[in-house]
Write a protein that binds this DNA or RNA. Sequence first.
DNA 1: ATCATAATTTGATCCTAGGCGAATTGTGGC
DNA 2: GCCACAATTCGCCTAGGATCAAATTATGAT
Lengths: 248, 248
Amino acid sequence: MIVEPGVARLAEAGADSGTDAAAESTVAGIAAAIGEPARARMLFCLMDGQARTSTELALVAGVSPSTASVHLQRLKAERLVKLFVQGKHRYYSLEGPAVASALESLSVLAGGAGRKFTSSTPNRLRAARTCYDHLAGALGVALNDRFQALGWLAVESAGAAYDLTVEGSQALAALGVDVAATRGLRRRFAPACLDWSERRPHLGGALGAALLQIALKKKWVTPDLDSRALAITAVGRREMLARLGLRV
Amino acid sequence: MIVEPGVARLAEAGADSGTDAAAESTVAGIAAAIGEPARARMLFCLMDGQARTSTELALVAGVSPSTASVHLQRLKAERLVKLFVQGKHRYYSLEGPAVASALESLSVLAGGAGRKFTSSTPNRLRAARTCYDHLAGALGVALNDRFQALGWLAVESAGAAYDLTVEGSQALAALGVDVAATRGLRRRFAPACLDWSERRPHLGGALGAALLQIALKKKWVTPDLDSRALAITAVGRREMLARLGLRV
DNA sequence: ATCATAATTTGATCCTAGGCGAATTGTGGC
DNA sequence: GCCACAATTCGCCTAGGATCAAATTATGAT
């Protein structure tokens, strides 16, 4: 019997750590940083896009301030959070939308992993929530669909992003969005973001963030106790039906 | 000075572990499972979609068979890999495309984390590679674009997936893809999969897998030593130019 | 200047999780 | 039935990491 060639190749690949082993090890580092319960709690708390101080994060993580501090150091070293200092307060927030996106995608796995799809009708998070700094959940997906149906939003760059049509720009301007300013920001304008509860994309990026700001300002939605969940107000229902033809 | 209401709410949210703390903890578990270097190496090795035995995986991970065995148990418990037994061999493979997708999204973070975009011209993996069981890299994205330009592929369901047009079905049938059988499989037909090196979507799912099979069968691409990398053959260049008008 | 508060650093403790070798189980070939 | 091989389980060791209390640094208020 002859030794299978495949095994020899595998051994070689294992010993050869020059190719993309570096990339793999960073992935392991990042995953390990997320993979500590206290740190995961902090990260998910930050997924609403707000910045929080280390003592606040110590509370949500359920650890002492000193412990939280080392955790945050680790997260910062892995570039999952960033720090900005204001006087004696030090605010931590997610490093960027990409981090929120990766956390969402791990949620997809976690959600799909629990095989009980039957009675596990989740909670109010399914209806409407924030994803980093924009709308997600059933409401986020519904808005996304509605905007496309109205011809306000067009699919761009092979499905990974959207762009506003002329009509869409006018319509959003009428809602109070400063489209030109939003477009001028140094982040992607309107990328598609996969929704873990709906398994379909919703609107993210600068435009998604601007939209959430408007919705909050007009009190269409209000943050729930758990800051990621959003409650749709009576005003919101009325306005979205009248302005968008969307029944929620 | 009054205590900020936000802090009280945060403490409450921390104590209240009923809402989505369960989801967070599973995410932590999954991330921790990925976050061990040896396990990460195994997972990335499996990203080509092949099933491998525990001894093979022990080799690539650089650990003893017994150690590899407990690692694989852990990965199976977290539903990241699945096991199928054939006689005295026990083959492990990724649990599903969703796992590959999550690993890919962590790669995005790891890639973006290294701020040296200058001299870090990566390796042959950028040109063409397998992502779980379909084509990725520059070639994967180029094919995706070309199919859309040819009117073979249409964007579906708000950008998260594609579907074949009538012309596309005929064209792929001419290439040797059994479109009807592919469509009948119990997995998503043609979802968009985000490419970490190109930062744009490529074609995944059942159709993406079928396409890779054809490309391998027709020897348009051949697996490199590192099994995730693919080399484009002379035949492949000629055929893709002639049949698709794609210069690679 | 002095004090109070926010946050980190230090030091010490504890314990989980990774590691391997040896023994055990399971399967196929003879 | 017996042996060879794959794979897992067991026992033991070690190290890294999570934790907190106490001390230290930094900043703002009085």
